[in-house]
Nucleic acid binder design. Sequence first.
DNA 1: GTGAAAGCGCTAACAA
DNA 2: TTGTTAGCGCTTTCAC
Lengths: 341, 341
Amino acid sequence: MTDTAPRPTLEAVAARAGVSRATVSRVVNGGDGVREPLVERVRRAVEELGYVPNQAARSLVTRRHDAVAVVVAEPETRVFADPFFALQLRGISKELTAHDNQLVLLLTEGRDDHARVGRYLAGGHVDGALVFSLHLDDPLPELIQRAGVPTVFGGRPGWSDGTTDVVYVDSDNRGGAREAVRHLVGLGRTRVAHITGALDQTSAADRLDGYRDVMGDADPELVVRGDFTPAGGERAMRELLDRCPDVDAVFAANDLTASGALRVLRERGRRVPEDVAVIGFDDMLPVAEQTDPLLTTVRQDIEEMGRLMARLLLRDLDRRSGGATPAGVVLPTTLIRRASA
Amino acid sequence: MTDTAPRPTLEAVAARAGVSRATVSRVVNGGDGVREPLVERVRRAVEELGYVPNQAARSLVTRRHDAVAVVVAEPETRVFADPFFALQLRGISKELTAHDNQLVLLLTEGRDDHARVGRYLAGGHVDGALVFSLHLDDPLPELIQRAGVPTVFGGRPGWSDGTTDVVYVDSDNRGGAREAVRHLVGLGRTRVAHITGALDQTSAADRLDGYRDVMGDADPELVVRGDFTPAGGERAMRELLDRCPDVDAVFAANDLTASGALRVLRERGRRVPEDVAVIGFDDMLPVAEQTDPLLTTVRQDIEEMGRLMARLLLRDLDRRSGGATPAGVVLPTTLIRRASA
DNA sequence: GTGAAAGCGCTAACAA
DNA sequence: TTGTTAGCGCTTTCAC
């Protein structure tokens, strides 16, 4: 481990360049309003001394941190079993670094973690927060509201009644689900089932709504509850086959669920897609492209969602937005046809 | 989005409690050397005003940030296809928050990102760094050394010659590989192949070494190069079957590779484990527990690795460690026997 | 044990 | 255009 060296200050650079601190500061912050020869001299001094501004000192006066907190509430380990989280993070990271902002990651695992996050956000360490509000009963949004930090949510928050001014980015879960089910119907399937996700998340509820939009009058027995995991998909598929042996199509709430369903289907000797057509949701490549047969699914651009969240937040932070920030942004989905339906 | 409220300062608390700023500061930082009644009064004032210390101001004088950077160099998208990254992050996060440190995530995607990270680290925003040095030719370590930030590496850095004082945490890749291959040999297999990982990473090189420790005198044709991906596993397995049709066991560099190999084996009509036994590495649950048959593999405790990295770094930061920090810590692995071998 | 005072390194009026 | 000056909110000697 290396030792920490004493860093040169603005003062030192000023002395070396033979100018005042203010001038150095100007140059360092863009150099507007400083004559070229001086700029040059200061730049050289900065270079020679290896000067890097002290962020703490700067923040103290500007009240800006150029840092954004990303809060991932994950009581369960599910997030860690699929690349969703990582992809979104990458999108966020790209956008943030493009605007010279840092990403402070706050992972919460339990109740006491919530308090810690609340304190941190209230502590004014960051300019804003990006929050993944995963469950209906999550206390986090409440805490954040109170902390008074500009925030953008990932996924439509369940507690938002639409009248408040929560900003969020979401996929068109309902529309995507509709498209998937319509595709199944278009294939001539008449007994189209749905394995839901964890229904305390709006994404799962919305996909179920989409299914019902198309299959509203269908046998309610065809809807089985899942939980977004492969194991849940297996369980649900078994239940489904027992309950409705004549099922000829399944719309699974996500790819992981579909992969579990696929396994059970094979185990029970049903051919896919001949006997039962299967569609997933997400287009999680490592899953959808590894199933047998390859999975037909509804793609959502996860990385873009992350990027968009960051962009929305940053725009709000630079109060340039004459008009109000849009309350919710919903990204389109696309059906990716492979072999399973 | 909520608006930012004016935060109360130390001064305000002092006024309200009828004491000096110094006293409030003492109480806020533990309250040593302040008489009980005063402590009480200050605490109440803090409570009533909802005072939270301004970290920037504090850092400015203490030169501490209570923040650690986590640098993940990932030119490829591989990290995002398996949960490795997320698990390690979680371990790190747990340990860090337990010690009131924040996690600043630095994702790098290309050359220019390296410069940015170097600048950030040199900028003294964080007290230390946790770095995943994934490839042999990575310029990052160099940059970090120059930035002079205390650092712990995840995985043995390839450029470390053992004499320098780099601190790292790694799994016993070589020992784990040996155990896997020995298990295969113990099963009576004589044509034991190895599909390697990306050999510009020490983990892959070490696993290959472990294989050779046991199979040193084996047919060199039995070693095929992979890249830690399922696709790479498929490719390698095909090559292997063409080259050595009599292969009766495969040690894959990781579970993802094994899953690809398994697929090809099935496609070619080889029974697992009867005809060909297969072992993976990692015990990545979402992969190892979804394969058919269930994958026998070598487990490494990834979350613990992350936790340990953080612990090592924090210990070094509180210069309490009388003795030197250990150069490298190597965690043991365990063979998890399932159905494939 | 408590308070007064001096900065930490920087930006942003305001003067010159 | 450039420099002077006054803090930002906090910790930390040093007196009392």
